[in-house]
Simulated scan of single mutants.
Amino acid sequence: MSHWTSIYQFPIDKDLSELAQFIQRYRLPLRIAEESNRQILSTLDPRLGELLLPLLQRWDAGEIRLADVRLEPVGETSAAGEETAQPESAAQGGKEPEAAAVSSPLPSWPWQKTALSLMLIALCFIGWLLLRNDLADVLIIYPDRGGDFQLDNMRQALGSSTLAWHLAHGEYWRLWSPALVHFSLPHALFNALGIWILGRPLEARAGTPVFAGLVFFSAAASNLTQYYWSPQILFGGMSGVVYALVGCVFVLQRWQPGWRDVPRGIVAVAVGWLLLCATGLVTYVFGVGVANAAHIGGFVCGLLLAVVYCLVGGARKFAPGSATV
């Protein structure tokens, strides 16, 4: 006996006439029903639901028109060598059609929903240009020289540190501004790519104010962690923020297993890279310094903030079928 499986939910006042025409045009085994003050789209084949989910999310977000979407029919090849569709429904005992949307499986967010992410990407390259032209002095935390930062002398050392000097002179922005400084073009490119892949889906789903809070706290947390760990070394870059995004995605993908805006392998690769760099092997082989403490500080900050966000109910915005803000 066949069972209908829910694959997407729409508000009760959402006009689904375009979707109904799309279903009728391709004779898809889908139905729309009203349940619990929602409009539920169901299918007899969960595999079809997985194929259509990215398309439905983009249409629900207003990014595309279903009238412009073309599906490739899957069927048998005729004697003339032409492929024919098999549109019979499961209720008739025929083979259900499979649909392949021409769009990318990952959502393409409009810039209005990811304005802060795009701004951060631009700031990565602006920070690199400022450093290259010796204009980044106002952004960095100057390294300490000859300070004793053993744990038993930590309080006294920090009280006379350059960070304390900066703060005493009202330069509070230096708690965040080192994240803008990038020491090479590849450094800026990798961090920009991380924000593009991880930051845009988070901002589009959670909303810019929530995303701004994540960036605000994680930038300070990663910078302070790196400074306390190695106060005698100059550091910079948005890697700490990127790893906060990694931590946030890690939690959300476990809270909402159906959320697939970010490929699951991205988090595994990022965590693996973090652990590899922490061993010192990357520095030994390539001779480049890595702000491991900033990575760890940002990652932990992202984990904690994401847990709090999910506990207060924010994870519902990442549920399959939920509309973006």
Rank of each mutant, 00 (worst) to 15 (best):
H3C: 01
S6L: 00
I7L: 08
A20L: 14
F22L: 09
R25W: 10
Y26G: 00
P29V: 02
I32N: 00
E34V: 02
S36E: 03
L44C: 08
P46T: 10
G49D: 12
G49M: 11
L56V: 07
P73C: 05
E76D: 04
A80Y: 11
P87I: 03
A91L: 12
A91M: 08
S104N: 02
W109I: 07
L123P: 13
L123D: 14
C124P: 13
C124K: 10
L129G: 11
I141P: 03
R145L: 05
G146T: 04
G147P: 06
T162N: 10
L163E: 02
A168Y: 01
H169S: 08
G170E: 00
E171Q: 14
P178R: 12
L189I: 13
I197S: 10
R205C: 07
A206G: 09
T208H: 08
P209G: 10
V210L: 10
F211P: 02
L214I: 10
S230Q: 13
S230C: 10
I233G: 11
F235Q: 02
S239R: 08
V246M: 11
L252H: 09
Q253S: 02
R254P: 01
G258R: 04
W259Q: 03
R260G: 14
R260F: 13
V267Q: 09
A268D: 09
W273F: 14
T279D: 03
V282P: 13
Y284A: 15
A291M: 01
N292P: 04
A293C: 06
A293R: 04
A294W: 10
G297Y: 01
G298Q: 07
L303I: 08
V308Y: 05
V308P: 01
Y309V: 02
L311Q: 12
A315S: 06
